[in-house]
């Protein structure tokens, strides 16, 4: 005890202002260089992946209380509730199977019509893999999911993620065992879309807090509240034809060439537990992807 006190008492040195200023300047410049590199290039993708892999135990530890709470709740679910849910799921599967039969027939019809018209088929055989949402984050800075599938499951950057109702977002970083999905409501995300009803094209952008805005729709365009927006496939990032949002408000500002349009996501961003990661068909891949 005495030795600890003595050792504790004799440290009287502090750093010099010159050393502090030099270190500060060096790290200040390095931080700005990192920000610029991260913003304007993909050079730091692997570095971010390395940081996320390092942080994986911390994220798992942070998710534990929520998982325990869910587990505790599930444990107390009655047998009757489980039986009811099972019954509901069986009915849902039956309906989906019936719809699948119709879909197969429609797919054949479209292919036949395309052959008659001499146009290429728009229906790509996109492959999917199911992933669970490990956690969901919605801060003022960013909105994302962390999924339990990563590089070991062949998850790649820029893959589109959907849930049962529509587009959820895009894979923006991966670690060997997990991946991050930037949600469509994130202010950094922009998706080329079209109005399902009339094919009018625009750009959907996140506004945070489950809100989206549809941009570049000219004044006088035939768009109304309730219109469904779907991915247009332009830009070769999001596959074509997936529902993404519904128009909630259309307003006109005098003197402006474009309408001010707000929309809400059709996907259940706050509630989805299972999502599908779409593997981009070869026809949609950017030729520079393999470089």
């Amino acid at each position: 005890m005495l030795s600890a006190k003595r050792r504790f008492a004799i440290n009287l040195t502090t750093t010099s202002p010159q050393k502090e200023a030099t270190q500060f300047l060096a790290l200040f410049i390095l931080s700005i260089a990192l920000m610029v590199a991260d913003h304007y290039s993909q050079a730091l993708t692997h570095f971010r992946s390395l940081l996320l892999t390092t942080l994986d135990p911390i994220e798992r530890a942070a998710a534990l209380p929520g998982e325990w709470y869910d587990w505790f709740q599930q444990d107390y679910q009655t047998l009757n509730e489980v039986q009811l849910e099972n019954q509901r799921l069986k009915t849902e599967i039956l309906l989906l199977k019936a719809q699948q039969q119709q879909f197969s027939k429609l797919k054949l019809d479209v292919e036949r019509l395309n052959r008659l018209l001499g146009t290429a088929s728009q229906m790509d055989d996109t492959q999917v893999q199911i992933a669970s949402v490990s956690f969901y984050s919605q801060t003022p800075y960013t909105h994302f999911y962390t999924l339990n599938k990563g590089q070991l499951d062949q998850v790649e950057l820029n893959q589109t993620v959907i849930d049962a109702k529509g587009v959820v977002g895009q894979i923006t970083s991966t670690t060997p065992v997990s991946s991050r999905v930037r949600l469509i409501t994130d202010p950094e995300i922009q998706v080329p879309v079209r109005v399902q009803r009339n094919g009018q094209r625009g750009m959907l952008s996140g506004m945070g807090h489950d809100r989206l805005k549809l941009m570049f729709i000219p004044d006088g365009a035939a768009i109304r509240v309730g219109d469904l927006l779907e991915t247009s496939g332009l830009g070769h990032v999001y596959p074509e034809g997936y529902p993404i949002a519904r128009v909630t408000q259309v307003s006109q500002t005098q003197g402006r060439p474009y309408l001010s349009i707000q929309a809400e996501p059709v996907a259940e961003l706050n509630r989805s537990q299972k999502v599908l990661i779409l593997t981009r068909p070869v026809s949609m891949r950017d030729p520079h992807d393999d470089d």
Binding site: M35, T54, S137
Partner: peptide
């Protein structure tokens, strides 16, 4: 700060800059 940037999915270096400052 860098770890914070990775956690928050913010641009790398942004929180590093703020923490250093």
């Amino acid at each position: 700060g860098l770890l914070f940037d990775a956690i928050l999915a913010s641009p790398l270096g942004a929180h590093a800059l703020l923490f250093v400052l």
